[in-house]
Design a protein around this nucleic acid. Structure first.
Lengths: 189, 189
DNA sequence: AATTTTAACTAACAAGCGTTAGTTTTGTAT
DNA sequence: ATACAAAACTAACGCTTGTTAGTTAAAATT
């Protein structure tokens, strides 16, 4: 039975507010009000607003980076790897749906050190993905379009999944994975 | 020979800053500094910060909504309509690349009246797109996946195009259109 | 040359910001 | 009951925010 600490509670509330209005438009007083306490009381649990943002973003960023490294190392063909990446995104989206808004839209407000770490992880993630695609094209498993166009197309869809998953009533995860694989890989024709 | 008014200049500078840091993180003093004037001087040309945001977003939103209505009315099959939609997005992205960041990320900071107008236009746009897809499935031109999944997948990619178009050195517009059509409609296999 | 318009300026406002210091309440363990 | 720690509180700080008022310099029009 995992009890959620006060700090984790603050981060969760903050993530929800950040998702609605963005990091810069949410004040410490907003977060406190949502928890029915005063802004100053937040500082018993966290060191500042920046720390909240960093915790939200870096936790999920690490999941993506590590998950991609695992997929990359698997000994399956490129199409199957792409399927695993899609599944990775669906899983993370379901489990951290609030955090993904900050990761997508507010990463540039991280302070220097955290920002550098984030960019490094993001680049590593994209480079692994690019590698999978290039390899697939080389082996004839993927049609020889510009890998950059394919990368961008798939990644855009996966990154925006969090926006869409709330709109549709909780669709079954496995069906969602299957549909995404179908549409992204085989096209719509 | 179209000369750009001072007001248009402010809006253009603001759009660039909004793209980098988001509406809420950009101050009137930031915008003024970028133009080498004082913040108070901005008010000789515009009524306030909100007005700048509304001008940036609504102008592009209207282009999308009208463009989609035109495509919808064309007498071609569904696949060709989707191709036209993709071309519409590429064209608007090339012409208004700064504004698209605000449209995607800061629309919720519009004031009530403008917000309602925006949401109405966005809903109309999506409903037309959905119609095209459902019609295509009905006529057997599109594989019978959930139309909502297809809609979301294509739209995510098109909406994020502005982020990617700057990263890649100015790729030829027609090649970009062709690649997008290929990948989004026919898939990668 | 005189007048009007445009667009900049300085100075200031009230409100809100993140954060700190010091204090009081609350709950737990002795 | 007493002592201690956790977590709330009030009050305030220096700074930034969007915006207004009043003024001045330059440019355009008469």
């Amino acid at each position: 039975m995992k009890t959620i600490s006060r700090k984790e509670e603050i981060i969760k509330v903050a993530a929800t507010l950040f998702k609605e209005k963005g990091y810069s438009a949410v004040s410490m007083r907003d977060i406190a009000a949502e928890m029915d306490i005063k802004a100053a009381s937040l500082y018993n649990h966290i060191n500042g607003k920046q720390e909240i943002l960093a915790e939200i973003i870096l936790k999920v960023a690490k999941e993506f980076t590590l998950g991609m490294e695992n997929v990359f190392a698997e000994e399956v063909d490129s199409i199957e790897k792409i399927e695993r990446v899609i599944e990775l995104h669906v899983d993370i989206t379901v489990n951290y749906s609030e955090a993904l808004a900050s990761l997508n839209n507010d990463w540039m407000h991280l302070q220097k050190t955290d920002l550098e770490l984030f960019v490094k992880m993001r680049d590593s993630y994209e480079e692994n993905f690019r590698s999978i695609l290039k390899d697939g094209i080389l082996k004839g498993e993927i049609k020889p379009n510009h890998p950059e166009v394919i990368l961008f197309s798939i990644l855009s869809t996966l990154r925006t999944l969090y926006l869409w998953n709330q709109k549709r009533g909780k669709l079954d995860v496995n069906i969602l994975k299957k549909d995404m694989v179908e549409v992204l890989i085989k096209g719509i024709i």
